[in-house]
């Protein structure tokens, strides 16, 4: 489903930053993969490369058989199949919750308004806030906003969901409600690639954990393997810090 081969990416801001160095990984259909690592390790960059929010310098990324690096690829069509949830929610503040969840359906998928609203309401039901359909994002709590963001991504009926630290900006008491939605998705067989430090999520529903440091993939394994008996010193040191 997701193929990443020998990807390199360097940022030139004030200093030269090697964000991704020879990264290779794959995620198969229905698999749930969590990427962990210290800040600046390139995990968010990797995730953003997967739907072309960042371009790569070298290497190849193939999503569902379509190479992102090919200039003939219609990137909008690929993105429509890849849902993304951001750390800062990024809901559209000038639209109601319902507007947020229907806009891409009607403009990109060309669904009728009625059909889009029906799908939206089903999804809002699923994430547990159908009663907020007519509210504006500013009237919701962080946890509610993030659940709307998940519903918005799901409304496109994507084949893959990417989560970029979805709970990092939330108050502790709201993390659970977002993780519950993510766990449900994982159990339903959605292909998921998530950057998160929520070990509970990783242990419960995750198939594999990828540990990254300084732009490189250091270690890959089952949650049990990575969390309980990691091979690398760097992984041990990182886990000791966050657990």
């Amino acid at each position: 489903m997701i193929e990443v081969r020998n990807v390199y990416k360097t940022f030139y801001s004030r200093h030269k930053v090697e964000a991704l160095v020879d990264v290779t990984m794959r995620v198969t259909r229905g698999e749930v993969v969590t990427i962990i690592g210290p800040s600046g390790s390139g995990k968010s960059t990797l995730l953003r490369c997967l739907n072309h929010l960042e371009t790569i310098d070298r290497g190849e990324i193939v999503i569902d058989g379509i190479p992102l690096t090919d200039s003939r690829t219609n990137i909008n069509a690929v993105r429509a199949e890849v849902g993304m949830v951001f750390q800062s929610f990024n809901l559209f503040p000038h639209m109601t919750v319902l507007g947020n969840v229907t806009i891409a359906q009607t403009k990109v998928r060309k669904r009728s308004r009625d059909q889009a609203e029906e799908i939206a309401m089903t999804l809002l039901q699923k994430v547990g806030i159908p009663e907020k359909a007519r509210s504006y994002p500013s009237q919701l709590s962080g946890g509610q906003q993030q659940r709307v963001a998940i519903a918005r991504a799901l409304a496109m009926q994507p084949k893959i969901m990417l989560f970029d630290e979805p709970t990092s900006a939330l108050d502790p008491e709201m993390i659970g409600e977002v993780l519950d939605v993510m766990k449900t998705l994982a159990r339903e067989g959605m292909t998921i690639c998530a950057v998160t430090h929520e070990m509970g999520f990783a242990r419960e529903v995750c198939d594999r954990v990828v540990f990254m440091d300084e732009g490189r993939i250091v270690e890959v394994g089952t949650p049990g393997k990575i969390f309980d008996s990691p091979d690398h010193e760097r992984t041990k040191a990182f886990l000791a810090q966050i657990l």
């Binding site: 909008n76 199949e81 951001f86």
Partner: peptide, 10 residues
């Protein structure tokens, strides 16, 4: 905002 919109395929 632009990233969220683009990630929805717009």
């Amino acid at each position: 905002q632009m990233e969220a919109a683009r990630s929805l395929g717009m």
